[in-house]
Design a protein around this nucleic acid. Structure first.
Lengths: 183, 183, 183, 183
DNA sequence: CATGAATGAGTGTTCATTCAT
DNA sequence: TATGAATGAACACTCATTCAT
């Protein structure tokens, strides 16, 4: 994965991948028929672990919905946006997604759709408790995540041009979202 | 550009680029020394036209700041997020930015930093008129744009997995942002 | 010619040749059908002027045959071995002769065979006058020139490795040849 | 080597070299990084074996110095001038020496300088025994070799125009040199 | 006559993939 | 099961040659 992240799919050489895995070029082909399949398998493996944490934490929360949403978002920043490896997977999906549609579908199903559901539930919980107003965001929870996703991309792409302070960004994001949803 | 967008930098063949331009391989090398330079030149050219429109429209606006921000955002969706070519440039920068750092710097300077300034000014205008509250978003205007950027990426990456309705998304975005900033 | 000498036939670019001639690439093709023909013509032109001087001087000499041979050889060193351009033509013939057999034939006919005849005549003159002994060199006059030709090649090839002092070399050569032929 | 000799450095195609070696294009690049390096390695390999024979024979000679010089020169004709491969290496060095200066230096050090030393020693031996006179050739032994080198070049370059009889040439050469050095 | 933009055949080099060991 | 030498398709880039201006 490290090699794919650094070099992209086309730029990654099978020999280098093999070396990084402390084995020989030929050995790779015992386990994967082509570089494409290797890529798919490797990326898939790195996608799986992601969602589990986020889901677990969504249960059994007893505070207000604002607190819950705030917490979820901060967690997302800490574990996803702030994690270079996970950001990199996103970049790889953006870059190579065209060639590997099943991969993006998988990522959507395993990660994004679950995050969407979670946000949706929290918003619903907030509306039910009178804490949040009715808003189009209920149906399109992705808007709520938007700035975080943008931050992840920013870190990988424009950070050289203009450093993004993740802590302050997260605070501004949460501030805006909570005020935006508040009843 | 079309070829680079479809195939990425590594995947794009110089012959194909030449054919698309209705000329021969060798002709490309009359104008660009290497594929890298061709790429830079082509991408740079596609970046330039973008910002002008957005900036012009920021002047001479007489309505409320909410209306102004709403309009700006909707414009952004119409002209940027909804425009496949411009989205594609973003994807290319995300994918190949590593290799071409001057390109992302250029993009930041020409496009993003200007958008940031514009948003900042509108928020300030709103605060000055008592329409918007003081909020961390003043200093980090990018959060305001976040969902739109995410939508652009979504369109290129996850639209197959789950179609994003740009109109409704934009509405949800504007709704949340305006409520989030309101005094 | 300069370009062919510096770069060899394959390495010489037609554009560069044209530039050196202060004209444009296309112009070359008004006068020569191919690079090969250009090469032949150019080399041929540089061959012609050479022999005339040497021949003229062979006539009307009134000294001893030793003096005459000595003079001829020193002339050869001065005008041929010591002249970078003429040396270079030799190198080019050695390098590219395979490809251009008519060229080497021409060179042989115009330059070498005449030099051979001249040497032969001097040796005969010396034998007739009792100055030189009968020797196989009469029939193979080229042995007499040998060291000079070698010096020419040395200058172009091994001079970096070990500088050859042309004056002393010529003296040693003449000394050996005159003693070798003396009756 | 065969391909380089036939086509020169620029004209030799890596594919052809590979084919001649009964392997595939790519295989060449397992052992040599570039065509240049391949060339250097190949030529170097062909240079090495040469000098050993000549040197060995220089020891333990009991005849006169004339006989010794005669023998050495005839050997040189038999093993060097008469050997197409060794001649070819010389031609290649003359042709491509410019590009590969280390190669000509190597050739000088391994072959020529050793031949020079040998000739010098024989001349000294002859002078010491009163067989040879003092002459500038002592300091510039290369003049003694000159005709042989010329013959080698002739064979490769002008033999089509005028066949050179190596046996007679060698005899004329030895005859002239021995008489030229004799006391 | 002169030009130089356009062409595309040709070549060095890379790298995914195979396979004998 | 693991290796890495061998392969050759593929591609960036060059340059002799053409031809419209």
């Amino acid at each position: 994965m490290a090699v794919f992240i650094e070099q992209g799919f086309a730029g990654a050489k099978v020999v280098d991948i093999a070396k990084r895995a402390k084995s020989a070029k030929g050995t790779v082909y015992l386990y994967f028929e082509t570089k494409e399949q290797l890529f798919e398998a490797v990326v898939r493996q790195y996608i799986q672990p992601t969602h589990v944490d986020m889901r677990a934490m969504a249960k059994n929360f007893s505070g207000s919905s604002s607190e819950m949403l705030s917490m979820i978002l901060h967690r997302f920043y800490a574990e996803f946006v702030g994690n270079e490896q996970r950001r990199s997977i996103m970049r790889i999906l953006i870059s190579e997604g065209h060639r590997f549609p099943e991969l993006t579908e998988y990522y959507y199903k395993e990660i994004i759709s679950k995050a969407e559901k979670m946000i949706k539930q929290i918003i619903k919980r907030g509306i039910d408790s009178g804490e949040f107003r009715e808003s189009p965001a209920q149906k399109i929870p992705t808007v709520v995540m938007g700035p975080a996703v943008m931050a992840a991309i920013w870190k990988m792409t424009f950070d050289n041009a203009s450093k993004l302070n993740l802590k302050k960004f997260a605070e501004a994001h949460v501030d805006m979202v909570l005020n935006g949803l508040r009843a």
